[in-house]
Design a protein around this nucleic acid. Structure first.
Length: 1008
RNA sequence: GCCCGGGUGAUGGAACGGUAGACAUGUAGGUCUCAAAAACCUAUGAGCGCAAGCUCAUGCGAGUUCGAUUCUCGCCCCGGGCACCA
């Protein structure tokens, strides 16, 4: 029997892939592009984790299939190498972090290559490479040089000190980790402890660089509607941003000019307000100080509150405390009632206005506080159902926090909460005592770190000129060599000690100045790395052109169409009908595919008077008729559009491609869009202006000077432009599939989406969102079901597994271990089973011969091809392997296996186990190597077999299995079933009330 | 408290509303061996039965259906995220 010498086989094929440049993606290929991105690792000294292997193995299998399917696939790898562990190692061992990083990268790369992942090594990037971080710094400078004003990105001149820049310095109470000696971002503080080392964090005030992510908060929520992420991921992002729509309401302070501004989402409860509360840190305290008679007591309380740790402050269960401000009263602007003012630490200074109106009857927190301090509880909302029994419920021991109908609210009594929120705020607005407003939980991003191993912030401080950005042509600002990497106790970065680096001349006035010594957090480099892969060696990466951004203007005509489509889609929604369409834009052969809801195309078509969707036939059996002339490009405003619509035929979606060829699509290929009523946002996505904005690739100046040109000339201009060196980025983006860990779905994903939107506004990236689709892998636990950790001694080392069982076994086991997105525990017996499977494959290869397979084998083979293709596309990796095992088990039972069948089996096995599949293939066929072959397609003929087993049921219970022609009629089936002795006995003499027959599945006799 | 997931044999897990438990592990018995390992074969949800077969089984309780692991409602438990965010 043949030996399975995996070591020799794997070495041989890994060398072959390197020699033949397998995995290197081609820029501007004629093939359709597919950008498959996996999160790049932090190269730690301890080497690759099996969790990495899980993601790489699955993504590599998918990538290899996509290449065989004819895609020009980019599957790059790089290193997110700035960060604390490296710095800490450097401090401890007195080694340069650069050296530590280099060694770790070497280890990682060697490990990845030993498992045979087909990364495009020609695009390898490293965030610590000055040629890389030059552009991280460039982006930072753009943040500094720009501001969002009235929803539009504008440039800010260097001497402008008033416009709120997107990167700015601020004296901030920051989270200080006394152990790491570092300022932590809010997001890095978990339960008041440092996310890295677990030490308790402290509050400190320090000047920090900040990024104004809050200016993008709304768009970060809205644009989630255009991408294909799991609901779970979308909700988590939405919750994190925490948008809250409400009102600001002003309470005048009696005998004073001062007004206290409060934020509330429940303006409808304003009549029930019996006191107001301000946060201990609030600036209002200083403003009212002189009028407060018990100011000593108040200051004492504030001091105490500030000294409490966040964990005590934010524990919702703890007893509420506070102090009344004696001597002052606030005036409720809706009814001019006097209410007391309290200071209490259950109100946060950092959210809203730092002050709230308290309505104890309708808010749990206010209720608890009012009970404790004996404050009046005034009922103003009744439950809708209980309107007739208008008895107040002041004695209950909880607040009624739902919406209802207003009572005791003057002219507003009888309104619903929803109505009253608007009406009350409108009235206040008239009196200049309130307005509608929106708040976010998301805070601006603290972007400074006081460490060595990060990108230097490219800023120079000059005594005369103030903050001066480093001129772009002087980038990168590189890290100097340092003797000692320890951060200073003053909270400054170790860079501050390097005089030769710090002291520079001001680029503006040439007088003495000094460099910013803070560095960036390690979220910086990872916020745009996927762009660099597209064009990793370009030293003019983010330069011209700036894209023209037209104003979005809604015309009367547009409004009419919005109404029209609102009606249509509301109707479709109510019927529970879902619609999809793909919209593909062709630009000089560059294929940009955007999946959009059908209505998008409709709206676009209508607005531009294009007959895309002309007729709807809406009845019980929904049918959509498209009359768009398929295959024809048309040109509008510099853009070549091409529509691809889908039609449902015989339960399958048929797409009409540009060449007029009909291509079948699986429904799974298309994301489902929730069909809600079109709002302003959907309109914007749908509007042609929006899409123009998306795909306009010429500079504003160019556009203005070229307005007189004909379409042909414009296209020519575009073609020329695309040949310019920036176009690789446009060719590859957006990322079609982004694969990563669950731990990154709030921070990294949010940050990189924010950067991308900013870059989009700058006009240097062509898409609104960086990632079209995001999936995530589950975590691999140790054999004991615990999280793997060195201290628990349950770490599985991938090197050992490769040594013991081979790379193919490890890869296949990583796919087989469990559902891709769920956590799974490592099982040593499990990997043995997979290894056994591969040994059996090798054994079966000896039975390959010129022979004809039985129908059973051909049926199973084709089912496997169809099933595995589907599973790989959906990352259902565990069933990919089990289906291969099933087929192999069937092969085992055969005397001989035909060459053709075995070759097909090897092609699909190749995705998971490329080494052994390549080897066995080369033994059978030396004319072409396996990775050059086209992905097999299941033969329909074998998917529908002549004979099938169907279940015969009586009253829904299976009583017999009979063999029957696949497409037998109900009559034939019934006769055959009744001829069966068991069935006939059971049916004997009984009345058949009804018969249900599902072709090829079941036959059910209902008796009685 | 709020928002997402998820509950199926001894175990990891499969099942377009249509034969529940594929595939793998484990266990038991067997073949081969002086013996063991490896490999291979057989059995393996529970209960009843000599057998044919029957009954019960997908967290619990209802509902829709000829038929529910799958859809709907209520409840219980587990995991993840957010959490005094007004």
């Amino acid at each position: 029997m043949k030996d399975y010498d995996f070591k020799a086989i794997e070495a041989k094929w890994q060398k072959y892939w390197t020699d033949t440049n397998y995995g290197i993606a081609e820029d501007f290929s004629d093939k359709p592009k597919f950008y498959s991105l996996i999160e790049f690792p932090y190269p730690s000294g301890s080497g690759l984790h099996v969790g990495h292997c899980m993601m790489y193995s699955a993504a590599d299998a998918h990538a290899r299939m996509m290449r065989m399917k004819g895609y020009n696939l980019m599957f790059p790898m790089g290193w997110d190498a700035f960060g604390l562990p490296t710095e800490n190692y450097a401090i401890k061992n007195k080694v340069k972090p650069q050296i530590v990083t280099e060694q770790s990268v070497k280890t990682f790369k060697k490990q990845q290559q030993s498992i045979g992942y087909s990364f495009d090594w020609s695009r390898e990037i490293n965030t610590t490479d000055p040629n890389y971080y030059k552009w991280t710094q460039w982006i930072f400078l753009q943040f500094y040089k720009h501001a969002v004003v009235d929803g539009k990105l504008i440039e800010v001149t260097d001497d402008d000190t008033t416009t709120p820049r997107l990167a700015f310095q601020s004296e901030m109470p920051v989270n200080w980790c006394p152990s790491c000696k570092i300022v932590l971002a809010n997001e890095e503080v978990i339960n008041n402890n440092c996310e890295r080392c677990g030490a308790g964090s402290q509050k400190r005030k320090q000047k920090q660089w900040m990024l104004r992510i809050t200016d993008y908060a709304d768009r970060l929520i809205k644009d989630l509607g255009t991408v294909d992420y799991l609901d779970k991921i979308k909700t988590q992002q939405i919750n994190w941003i925490g948008k809250s729509v409400g009102s600001n309401i002003q309470f005048k302070i009696q005998n004073s000019e001062l007004k206290i501004n409060v934020f509330t989402t429940r303006a409808d409860t304003l009549f029930g307000c019996t006191y107001i509360v301000i946060a201990p840190e609030s600036d209002y305290i200083a403003m009212v100080k002189d009028q407060v008679s018990n100011i000593k007591e108040v200051e004492e309380y504030i001091k105490k509150a500030k000294s409490k740790s966040d964990i005590d402050r934010t524990d919702a269960d703890k007893d509420k405390t506070g102090v009344k401000l004696e001597g002052i009263k606030a005036i409720n602007p809706i009814n001019d009632e006097e209410v007391d003012v309290y200071v209490a630490d259950y109100v946060l200074a950092s959210y809203g206005t730092g002050a709230v109106m308290a309505v104890p009857a309708h808010d749990d927190r206010d209720f608890a506080f009012a009970k404790k301090y004996g404050i009046e509880i005034k009922q103003v909302i009744n439950e809708k159902i209980a309107t007739s029994l208008s008895a107040p419920r002041n004695d209950d021991n909880q607040a009624f926090t739902d919406y209802g109908v207003l009572v005791n609210s003057g002219e507003f009594s009888g309104l619903t909460s929803e109505e009253a929120k608007t009406k009350i705020t409108e009235k206040l607005k008239k009196d200049d005592l309130g307005d509608f407003t929106t708040n976010f939980k998301l805070r601006d991003w603290i972007f400074s770190r006081q460490h060595y191993w990060g990108e230097p912030i490219p800023i120079i401080h000059c005594d005369k000129c103030g903050i001066v950005p480093v001129p772009v042509d002087q980038l990168p600002v590189t890290l100097p060599d340092v003797e000692n990497y320890e951060p200073t106790d003053t909270g400054e970065s170790p860079l501050a000690k390097i005089d030769s680096w710090v002291n520079v001349k001001c680029p503006k006035c040439n007088s003495d100045a000094h460099r910013e010594t803070d560095t960036m957090p390690n979220w910086a480099g990872s916020s745009w790395y996927f762009l660099r892969y597209c064009d990793p060696k370009n030293d003019q990466f983010f330069t011209k052109p700036t894209f023209f951004q037209p104003e979005i203007e809604v015309t009367e005509k547009d409004k009419k169409y919005i109404e029209e489509f609102k009606a249509i889609y509301t109707d479709l929604d109510q019927k529970g009908i879902k619609t999809w369409a793909a919209n593909r834009f062709m630009l000089n052969g560059i294929n940009r595919k955007v999946w959009l809801p059908l209505r998008t195309i409709s709206v676009m078509g209508s607005l531009k008077d294009l007959p895309v969707v002309e007729k709807y036939v809406i009845d019980n059996n929904y049918k959509l008729e498209t009359v768009y002339p398929y295959g024809k490009l048309f040109i509008k405003d510099d853009i070549r559009f091409e529509y691809v619509t889908f039609e449902e035929k015989d339960g399958k979606l048929i797409s009409f491609s540009e060449k007029g060829a009909i291509q079948e699509m699986s429904k799974n290929d298309l994301p489902e869009f929730p069909l809600g009523v079109i709002d302003d946002f959907h309109y914007r996505v749908c509007s042609p202006e929006y899409n123009l904005k998306h795909y306009k690739f010429i500079s504003k100046n160019e556009s203005e000077t070229r307005q007189g040109l004909g379409d042909e000339e414009k296209i020519k201009f575009l073609e020329e432009w695309l040949e310019a060196n920036n176009s690789k980025r446009l060719y590859w983006t957006p990322v079609d599939l982004y694969n990563g860990g669950p731990e990154h779905i709030t921070l990294h994903l949010l940050y990189s989406r924010f950067w991308h939107k900013f870059l989009y506004d700058l006009g240097v990236v062509p898409t609104l969102e960086p990632y079209q689709k995001r999936i995530q892998h589950g975590i691999i636990l140790g054999p004991d079901g615990q999280k793997m950790s060195k201290s628990k001694g349950n770490v599985v080392n991938p090197d050992e597994m490769v040594e013991k069982f081979g790379a193919d076994t490890l890869r296949a086991y990583m796919m087989f271990i469990g559902p891709y997105d769920q956590e799974s525990a490592w099982n040593n017996a499990g990997i043995m089973g997979v290894h056994r499977f591969l040994k059996r494959v090798v054994a079966n290869s000896e039975k390959v011969n010129v022979t004809k397979d039985t129908n059973d084998v051909l049926v199973k083979l084709n089912q496997t091809v169809a099933g595995v293709t589907d599973d790989l596309e959906n990352f259902q990796m565990n069933t990919v392997i089990s289906k291969l095992m099933e087929l192999n088990n069937l092969f085992e039972k055969q005397e001989k296996i035909s060459t053709e069948s075995f070759k097909t089996f090897l092609q699909i096995l190749y995705t998971a186990c490329p080494h052994i599949a390549s080897e066995l293939w080369s033994e059978i066929d030396n004319t072409v190597s396996i990775e050059q072959t086209a992905w097999p397609v299941a033969d329909e003929k074998y998917l529908l077999t002549d004979e099938v087993d169907i279940a015969v049921q009586i009253n829904g219970k299976t009583r017999q299995i009979i063999k029957i022609k696949q497409n037998a009629s109900q009559e034939e089936a019934e006769n055959l079933a009744k001829a069966d002795t068991k069935i006939s006995e059971l049916l004997n003499g009984q009345n058949i009330k009804k018969t249900v027959y599902v072709t090829g599945r079941i036959l059910n006799f209902v008796l009685q």
